[in-house]
Simulated scan of single mutants.
Amino acid sequence: MSEAMIEAISWLSVAATMAILALYEFRFAIRARRPTERVARQAHETLREEWFAAISTTPGTEVLAVQTLRNSLMSASVTASTAVLGLVGAVTLSAPLLRESFILGGMPMFTPRLALELVLLVLLLSSLISSAMAVRYYTHAGFIGAMPVGSESRLRWTATGGLYVRRAGVLYGRGLRNLILLSPVLTGIVYPFAGPVAAILVVRGLQRFDRLSKQTRSVHHPEA
């Protein structure tokens, strides 16, 4: 098999890997806009917001609220730390190869491996930013949750606290999801032909996490 054919097959494998992941995310985005097709991420957003509203009307739950938000903040911090370590490592290992690939003998060289390395860096950077913003929102929500229930300040900030908890959860989930999506990208870097297979396996796993169980659906939709 000639080098040109191998490179062409590698490009097809890279394109198939990215297409599988992109199509699944696009399909989920379309489903998330339909109120009749609730998925796990939507239900969890509502759960966090309703939780904050509940503790905001129950005296004596200030410490519980702060502890719960602190645990969530620590989880987001771990995700952010993992992303930044991965980003630094990827840049350190890839920078020489990226420089040589872009300019080799005065001619730009864009290879399948380079394309996957760029996607890897984008996913890691996106995970870092999303997780760091989740930490920010959880921190602000913690201050609001520590306010005495029934106080004027708590009543004034309750709606904002619920919004911050909802946003923090969305951003944390996005950061964690991007780390999961790294699996087929890393597989494609090591062995391009295995990238589409890894992408299919990851998508199948995400489908199970994104789908509400029958028990949960019956809670949200008793008539179902």
Rank of each mutant, 00 (worst) to 15 (best):
P108D: 08
Q207A: 11
S94T: 05
G188K: 00
S56H: 02
E100Q: 15
G60A: 12
P184M: 07
T187N: 00
A141W: 01
L176D: 01
S213T: 15
V170K: 08
A76Y: 02
A8Q: 15
S56K: 02
Y191C: 07
A95Q: 12
R167I: 11
L121T: 04
R211W: 12
G105T: 02
T68Y: 04
L73T: 05
A65W: 00
A32K: 09
V202E: 02
L64I: 13
V203D: 04
A141I: 03
M18H: 10
A53T: 11
T17R: 01
W51F: 12
E3K: 02
N71K: 11
L206A: 04
S10F: 00
L93V: 14
F209E: 15
L121H: 06
L97V: 08
W157D: 11
L128Q: 05
Y164E: 09
A32E: 15
M107A: 13
R166N: 05
S101H: 01
P96I: 03
L64P: 02
I55E: 01
R204C: 14
G161Y: 03
A43K: 00
S81I: 13
P108Y: 09
E152T: 13
Y137N: 13
E50S: 14
M1H: 13
R208C: 08
P96V: 05
L12R: 12
I20K: 02
V91A: 14
V149C: 03
L186K: 06
T68M: 13
G175C: 00
R204P: 03
R166T: 03
L201A: 15
V185T: 03
I9N: 09
T187Y: 01
L12H: 10
L87P: 02
G188C: 06
L125V: 11
V135E: 04
M109K: 15
V91Y: 10
L97Y: 07
R217T: 05
A90Q: 06
G173D: 13
I103Q: 09
R48I: 08
F26E: 08
G175A: 05
T92R: 14
S153V: 12
L181G: 00
W11I: 05
E152H: 12
G162P: 03
F28G: 06
S130R: 03
V203Y: 01
Y191N: 13
S213K: 06
L47F: 15
S94V: 05
V185I: 15
A224G: 12
R31K: 14
G106H: 08
V185G: 04
L97G: 08
A224W: 15
W11C: 03
T92K: 10
A16V: 06
S10A: 15
T187P: 02
A224T: 13
G162V: 08
H140M: 11
V203R: 00
R167Y: 09
E49Y: 07
V165P: 01
A90T: 12
S94K: 04
A29N: 10
A16Y: 02
E223Y: 11
L120P: 00
A198E: 04
L182Q: 01
P96M: 04
A199C: 06
F209Y: 13
T187S: 06
T216G: 00
S127H: 02
A29P: 01
R34T: 09
E45T: 09
L176S: 11
R204G: 15
T57P: 00
L201R: 10
E49M: 10
V197G: 01
L176F: 11
R113E: 14
G162S: 06
A194V: 07
T158S: 15
R136C: 05
A159C: 07
Q42D: 14
L179S: 01
